[in-house]
């Protein structure tokens, strides 16, 4: 072979390659753990987003109250309003 190669260079290359493979082996599992962590995080985020999306269709407390008020007889509403005024006076809001 006409190429120049210093004595012992081949042995050095073998040592370098073995060290590189050992490093790759050490980080191979790190990579797996990282990929698993990212996968779990992505799935969790997806579930949270789905939950928030579905939850946004649920009526709020105010809407539920308004529904009840709309269906309630007038005297009940008056009674409810009187209760609120009384509560406000008691708690010195008025």
């Amino acid at each position: 072979m006409p190429y120049h190669l210093e004595q012992g260079a081949m042995e050095m290359m073998k040592i370098r390659s073995k060290a590189a493979v050992a490093r790759a082996a050490a980080t191979k599992n790190d990579g797996k753990i990282f990929r698993w962590s990212v996968s779990i995080a992505v799935v969790t985020c997806a579930f949270l987003a789905l939950f928030v999306f579905v939850d946004s269709f649920k009526p709020t407390h105010y809407e539920l109250l308004m529904e009840q008020v709309a269906e309630a007889p007038v005297d009940v509403i008056y009674e409810f309003a009187a209760d609120i005024v009384e509560y406000a006076e008691d708690t010195t809001l008025l």
Binding site: M1, Y3, H4, L5, A9, M10, M13, R16, S17, A20, V21, A24, A25
Partner: peptide, 26 residues
């Protein structure tokens, strides 16, 4: 190594490439 060296010619390139080959194979 000699297979790579005959392609890339330079020893430094062949040395780095050889290491990359074993890491890729692993």
């Amino acid at each position: 190594y000699w297979h790579i060296r005959r392609i890339v010619v330079l020893h430094e390139d062949a040395q780095d490439a050889l290491q990359d080959v074993f890491v890729a194979a692993f």
